[in-house]
Lab assay of single mutants.
Amino acid sequence: MTLTLTVPPGAKVRVRITNENGETTEIEVEPGETVTITLPAGSTVRVEVEVVDPDGRKRTETFTLKP
């Protein structure tokens, strides 16, 4: 399973991925970048995406991906 994120110009994104064992991976994606994350097959993962807009506003979306 893959997750692809494209960050709009001016925004910053931090992604936290937590697996079933509670292990967390965190990455930051710079403005204008596209990143593809390969998620472990057969695992349920929690993905938290934090977006910081150019004006400093933050918003966070959290979702769970199941196999």
Score class of each variant (00 low, 15 high):
residue 1 M to D: 07
residue 1 M to L: 08
residue 1 M to A: 06
residue 1 M to R: 02
residue 2 T to A: 08
residue 2 T to S: 06
residue 2 T to I: 13
residue 2 T to Q: 05
residue 2 T to Y: 11
residue 2 T to C: 15
residue 3 L to I: 05
residue 4 T to V: 10
residue 4 T to G: 07
residue 4 T to M: 07
residue 4 T to D: 07
residue 5 L to T: 10
residue 5 L to R: 03
residue 5 L to Q: 03
residue 5 L to H: 04
residue 6 T to C: 15
residue 6 T to Q: 12
residue 6 T to A: 09
residue 6 T to V: 05
residue 6 T to S: 07
residue 6 T to E: 10
residue 6 T to W: 15
residue 6 T to F: 13
residue 6 T to N: 12
residue 7 V to L: 11
residue 7 V to C: 09
residue 7 V to S: 01
residue 7 V to A: 01
residue 8 P to A: 12
residue 8 P to I: 13
residue 8 P to R: 10
residue 8 P to Q: 11
residue 9 P to V: 08
residue 9 P to R: 08
residue 9 P to D: 08
residue 9 P to S: 06
residue 9 P to F: 06
residue 10 G to N: 10
residue 10 G to V: 06
residue 10 G to S: 07
residue 10 G to T: 02
residue 10 G to I: 04
residue 10 G to R: 07
residue 10 G to Y: 03
residue 10 G to L: 10
residue 10 G to P: 09
residue 11 A to S: 10
residue 11 A to E: 02
residue 11 A to C: 03
residue 11 A to Y: 03
residue 12 K to L: 06
residue 12 K to V: 09
residue 13 V to A: 08
residue 13 V to Q: 02
residue 13 V to F: 02
residue 13 V to Y: 01
residue 14 R to F: 12
residue 14 R to H: 10
residue 14 R to L: 12
residue 15 V to R: 00
residue 15 V to C: 09
residue 15 V to A: 04
residue 15 V to H: 01
residue 15 V to I: 06
residue 16 R to I: 05
residue 16 R to E: 05
residue 16 R to N: 04
residue 17 I to T: 12
residue 17 I to M: 11
residue 17 I to G: 13
residue 17 I to S: 11
residue 18 T to L: 09
residue 18 T to W: 14
residue 18 T to D: 07
residue 18 T to H: 13
residue 18 T to E: 10
residue 18 T to Y: 12
residue 19 N to W: 13
residue 19 N to Q: 09
residue 19 N to D: 07
residue 19 N to G: 11
residue 20 E to P: 04
residue 20 E to Q: 05
residue 20 E to F: 06
residue 20 E to M: 04
residue 20 E to L: 07
residue 20 E to I: 05
residue 20 E to H: 05
residue 21 N to T: 06
residue 21 N to W: 07
residue 21 N to D: 11
residue 22 G to K: 08
residue 22 G to W: 11
residue 22 G to C: 15
residue 22 G to H: 11
residue 22 G to E: 10
residue 23 E to N: 09
residue 23 E to R: 06
residue 23 E to P: 09
residue 23 E to A: 08
residue 23 E to G: 09
residue 24 T to K: 08
residue 24 T to G: 11
residue 24 T to M: 07
residue 24 T to H: 08
residue 24 T to V: 05
residue 25 T to A: 08
residue 25 T to R: 09
residue 25 T to I: 10
residue 25 T to G: 07
residue 25 T to M: 11
residue 25 T to P: 08
residue 26 E to Y: 03
residue 26 E to P: 14
residue 26 E to V: 04
residue 27 I to P: 15
residue 27 I to G: 11
residue 28 E to K: 07
residue 28 E to I: 03
residue 28 E to D: 11
residue 28 E to Q: 10
residue 29 V to S: 12
residue 29 V to T: 12
residue 29 V to A: 04
residue 29 V to N: 15
residue 30 E to K: 09
residue 30 E to F: 07
residue 30 E to N: 04
residue 30 E to G: 03
residue 31 P to A: 06
residue 31 P to L: 15
residue 31 P to F: 10
residue 31 P to T: 06
residue 31 P to N: 11
residue 31 P to M: 10
residue 31 P to V: 14
residue 31 P to H: 06
residue 32 G to N: 13
residue 32 G to C: 13
residue 33 E to K: 06
residue 33 E to A: 11
residue 33 E to S: 13
residue 33 E to C: 14
residue 34 T to E: 09
residue 34 T to I: 13
residue 35 V to L: 07
residue 35 V to G: 05
residue 35 V to F: 09
residue 35 V to N: 06
residue 36 T to W: 12
residue 36 T to A: 09
residue 36 T to Q: 06
residue 36 T to S: 07
residue 36 T to N: 10
residue 36 T to I: 15
residue 37 I to E: 10
residue 37 I to P: 02
residue 37 I to A: 12
residue 37 I to D: 04
residue 37 I to C: 12
residue 38 T to E: 06
residue 38 T to Y: 07
residue 38 T to Q: 06
residue 39 L to E: 09
residue 39 L to D: 08
residue 39 L to F: 14
residue 39 L to N: 11
residue 39 L to S: 12
residue 39 L to W: 10
residue 39 L to T: 07
residue 40 P to V: 14
residue 40 P to H: 12
residue 40 P to S: 10
residue 40 P to M: 11
residue 40 P to T: 14
residue 40 P to I: 14
residue 40 P to Y: 14
residue 40 P to D: 10
residue 41 A to V: 05
residue 41 A to N: 10
residue 41 A to T: 09
residue 41 A to H: 07
residue 42 G to V: 14
residue 43 S to A: 13
residue 43 S to D: 14
residue 43 S to F: 10
residue 43 S to M: 14
residue 43 S to Q: 15
residue 43 S to G: 14
residue 43 S to K: 14
residue 43 S to I: 13
residue 43 S to P: 05
residue 44 T to K: 02
residue 44 T to P: 12
residue 44 T to N: 03
residue 44 T to C: 14
residue 44 T to Q: 05
residue 45 V to A: 05
residue 45 V to T: 07
residue 45 V to Q: 07
residue 45 V to C: 07
residue 45 V to K: 03
residue 45 V to F: 11
residue 46 R to H: 05
residue 46 R to T: 10
residue 46 R to I: 12
residue 47 V to I: 05
residue 47 V to F: 01
residue 47 V to M: 01
residue 47 V to T: 00
residue 47 V to E: 00
residue 48 E to I: 03
residue 48 E to M: 03
residue 48 E to S: 03
residue 48 E to P: 00
residue 48 E to N: 02
residue 48 E to V: 05
residue 49 V to N: 00
residue 49 V to Q: 00
residue 49 V to I: 13
residue 49 V to A: 01
residue 49 V to E: 00
residue 50 E to V: 03
residue 50 E to H: 03
residue 50 E to W: 02
residue 50 E to M: 02
residue 51 V to D: 01
residue 51 V to T: 12
residue 51 V to Y: 13
residue 51 V to M: 04
residue 51 V to F: 11
residue 51 V to R: 01
residue 52 V to R: 03
residue 52 V to D: 01
residue 52 V to H: 02
residue 52 V to M: 04
residue 52 V to L: 02
residue 53 D to C: 15
residue 53 D to Q: 03
residue 53 D to Y: 15
residue 53 D to L: 14
residue 53 D to A: 03
residue 53 D to K: 00
residue 53 D to N: 02
residue 53 D to P: 00
residue 54 P to C: 12
residue 54 P to Q: 10
residue 54 P to V: 06
residue 54 P to D: 04
residue 54 P to E: 10
residue 54 P to R: 06
residue 55 D to A: 02
residue 56 G to C: 01
residue 56 G to S: 00
residue 56 G to D: 00
residue 56 G to Q: 00
residue 56 G to L: 00
residue 56 G to F: 00
residue 57 R to N: 11
residue 57 R to Y: 02
residue 57 R to S: 13
residue 57 R to V: 10
residue 57 R to A: 03
residue 57 R to M: 04
residue 57 R to K: 07
residue 58 K to I: 14
residue 58 K to R: 05
residue 59 R to C: 15
residue 59 R to M: 03
residue 59 R to Y: 15
residue 60 T to M: 03
residue 60 T to Y: 07
residue 60 T to L: 05
residue 60 T to D: 00
residue 60 T to R: 02
residue 61 E to T: 14
residue 61 E to M: 14
residue 61 E to V: 15
residue 61 E to G: 01
residue 61 E to Q: 06
residue 62 T to A: 03
residue 62 T to C: 15
residue 62 T to G: 02
residue 62 T to P: 00
residue 62 T to V: 14
residue 62 T to M: 03
residue 62 T to Y: 12
residue 62 T to Q: 03
residue 63 F to A: 02
residue 63 F to L: 11
residue 63 F to D: 00
residue 63 F to R: 00
residue 63 F to Y: 06
residue 63 F to W: 05
residue 64 T to V: 13
residue 64 T to N: 04
residue 64 T to M: 07
residue 64 T to K: 02
residue 64 T to D: 12
residue 64 T to F: 15
residue 65 L to T: 01
residue 65 L to F: 15
residue 66 K to M: 14
residue 66 K to S: 15
residue 66 K to A: 14
residue 66 K to L: 14
residue 66 K to W: 15
residue 66 K to P: 15
residue 67 P to W: 15
residue 67 P to Y: 15
residue 67 P to R: 01
residue 67 P to T: 14
residue 67 P to A: 13
